[in-house]
Design a protein around this nucleic acid. Sequence first.
DNA 1: AGATTAGACAGGTTCAAACAGGTATGTCAC
DNA 2: GTGACATACCTGTTTGAACCTGTCTAATCT
Lengths: 235, 235
Amino acid sequence: MSEVFPETKPERIARLLEAEIRSGVLQDGDALSSESALVERFSVSRSSVRKGLAILATKGLIRKRVGLGSFVTFGGSVIDNERGWSLALSDAGVSMGARILKISRLAMDLAPSGLEGEDVLAVDRIRFREETGAAVTLERARVPWRPDFDQILTDGLEAGSLSRTLESRGIVAVSGEEWANVLPALSPEDAAIMGRAAGEPMLRLRRLTRTGDGAPVEYVESLLDPGLFGLHMEF
Amino acid sequence: MSEVFPETKPERIARLLEAEIRSGVLQDGDALSSESALVERFSVSRSSVRKGLAILATKGLIRKRVGLGSFVTFGGSVIDNERGWSLALSDAGVSMGARILKISRLAMDLAPSGLEGEDVLAVDRIRFREETGAAVTLERARVPWRPDFDQILTDGLEAGSLSRTLESRGIVAVSGEEWANVLPALSPEDAAIMGRAAGEPMLRLRRLTRTGDGAPVEYVESLLDPGLFGLHMEF
DNA sequence: AGATTAGACAGGTTCAAACAGGTATGTCAC
DNA sequence: GTGACATACCTGTTTGAACCTGTCTAATCT
C-alpha cells in the first residue's frame, strides 16, 4: 500500500538480499558476498551497499564482523533456545502444566551472574507433570530492570512468555553463555516449592544472554528433573 | 564482550579443542598434536592454529613448551562455587593420575550409540586425585574395529592418548554430537571401580564423533565427578 | 537538501614463508 | 659407556600480501 514512493538504493539492496535469505538461497550461517562484490553486483557505491546491509543487521537477519564479512543469522535470534545446548526431553509423552510462581521487582538475588546489586525483574516459573503434580522444572529468570517493566507487574507476561514480552520492548538477545552442572542435593526450600524430595540430585542449567553490544538481557537459572532432561549439542 | 556468531578460525579451533579437553578425549597431561599437524587437520594456516592455542592457554586449559609441544593442563572445572565464573579454572591445580583399566577388542557393549553389534576397540580409563585415590572420571571409549588396531592391543596407546593413536592412523573427527545428563545413582560396579560411594549422583557425558563423510569415529561415555566437572558454552 | 558516489585510510583476519632457538634422539668416535 | 655432533621436530617471532569491514571526506547528482 504505502510503497508508492520510490525506493532508495539501500532499501532495494536490503529487500533483494532479504528475499534471498527468507527464501533459503542464503542460509543461516552462510557468508554474504563482500561489500565490494555487492558493489559490483548491484552497480552502486559502497555506501549504499553498507546502508543496505545496515538495514538487514538491524532486522537481525545478518551479522557483520570486521575482517570476516557479513553472515546470515536468520533463525539465530528468533527462538532463544536455538543455540547452545539444546534441552532434550527424554520422555516425550508426558503432559505438563506450567505455573508462574511470582513476577516481581527486587534486587538481584541469585549468585554470580554479572548482575549483582542491580534491580531486576524476577519471574519464577515451574512446570509439572499433570498426573503427579510434582514439578519437573523450576526456573528463575532475572532481567535488568527497565522503567517500562512496570506494566508487566500488573498485567503479566505477553502470551505467557518472557522472551516475547522482552522482544516487544525491543530487547533481543544475540549471544550468551550457558553453564550446566549437577546439583548434588535439592535444597529443602526448593524441594518444598517443587513438591519433590529434598536431597535429590538435579540438573542445573544457568544461562546468561546478551544484546549485540554486550549488555546482559536475561539470566536464567533452571533446576531440571534429571530423569526427564538432558543436554544435547552438535558440533 | 565476545560476539561469537561469525566465528574466526582461531575461535573455532579453540572451541573444538576445548570440547575435546572438557569431555576427556584429551586428558590432563596429554600432548596436543603439533601445530603443523593441527594446520593439516583444520586446514588453516599456522597463525590461526597458534591463535587458537593461545586462546586455550589464556583459559588455562593448555600449556606450551618450546621444543616439546602443547600439553593439556586441566583437571576439571569447578563451576559450582559461589565465587564467580572467571575463577572456575583456578582450582585446576589438583594433581591427578590416570590409569588405563583395559584395552581390548569386543562386541559393542554400550547402550544406543549407532555402533550396535559391531566389533570395537574398547579403552576404559579412570582419572583420580593423587591425594585421595578416588576416581573423578571413568571413561569408556569405543572405536569401530579396524585391522590395524591389533598393534594397539599389544603395544598400548601412542603417548597414552587414544586420539593420538587414531590420528596416526588417519582417523580424524570433524563433527559430532554430545549428550549430557545426570546419572542419579552410581552403580555398585562402577562405584567399586572408581572407589566412590554407590548411589552418588554423577554427571554423565556421551559423545559420538564422526569423520567428514559421516562415519563414526569414536563413542565415549564418561562418568564425571559432579563437583569438579561442568559444561560451559558460549553462543 | 538529501541521496549517492568515489576515494583514502585505519584496523581486523588469514595465509605463506622464512628464520631463530629449544628439545629429543640417533650416530659416531673415543 | 660417554661425550660431541648432526638431524629432526617442536615452538616463538617477524614480515608481507591479500582481503575484509569501519570510518571519514569531498564531489556529484536529483
